[in-house]
Simulated assay, not measured.
Amino acid sequence: MSYKIPESVLVVIHTPDLQVLLLERADRPGFWQSVTGSLDAVDEPLAGTAAREVAEETGIVASEHVLTDWHHTIEYEIYPQWRHRYAPGVTRNTEHWFGLCVARPLEPKLAPREHLQWQWLPWEQAAERCFSRSNAEAVRQLAWRVAPCGAA
């Protein structure tokens, strides 16, 4: 078994009018989140990780929309139920935040091993729905972080 790299991305997928796509975790029903995922290799570019994770989890092709690196990084303690995925003794993860603006709500093609269902919500409701405090904070920051996006 190879261990996950304790460095990841969080991608808030949103529309220009600040509707946010949330996904329900398959391994934790009732836990709603944005797209997240770890680097596949220590030298994988962060934007590449963000685009790959969006495609894997939703089928959305980031290059067809506006992917923005928010240049915001947080470090958090890995939830105990997921620590077995990391090397022994690894308890913290560094997460980099991105936004992906799509022109309108899209119907994602979920990776069934990762997510059960999806929903688009206004940003305020999406922030309330996120199980992770950091994900909720990223969604709350959306309004002032959003760059103009006229995605096709």
Rank of each mutant, 00 (worst) to 15 (best):
T49W: 03
D69P: 13
E114R: 10
Q125S: 12
S2I: 05
E128F: 12
A136I: 05
R140P: 09
P80A: 15
S38Y: 14
C101P: 13
E124F: 04
P105F: 02
V61N: 10
E77G: 01
E114I: 07
H84P: 05
Y3F: 07
R104N: 06
H115V: 02
R92E: 08
R83W: 08
A126I: 06
L10P: 03
H65V: 00
E56I: 03
W32M: 00
Q19L: 08
A151S: 11
H96K: 09
A147G: 13
W144L: 15
L106E: 04
G99A: 14
H96M: 05
A103R: 08
V54E: 01
G89L: 03
A55S: 10
R83F: 09
E114M: 14
V61W: 09
P45S: 00
R52I: 02
T49F: 05
Y86K: 07
V11F: 12
A41Y: 13
E124R: 15
R129G: 04
W118A: 05
G48F: 13
E75K: 02
F98G: 10
V139I: 12
A50I: 01
G37D: 00
R52H: 07
D69Q: 06
V42R: 10
A136W: 03
W97G: 02
Q125C: 04
V54I: 12
A151V: 10
P122Y: 06
H115E: 01
P16G: 01
L116Q: 13
K4G: 08
L23H: 11
C130M: 10
V42T: 13
C130W: 04
Q141W: 09
L22I: 14
A103C: 04
A41S: 15
T58Q: 12
Q33S: 07
S134M: 08
V139S: 06
Q81I: 15
I60N: 01
W144H: 15
L116H: 06
H65F: 00
H115W: 12
V90P: 00
T49Q: 01
E75S: 15
L106S: 03
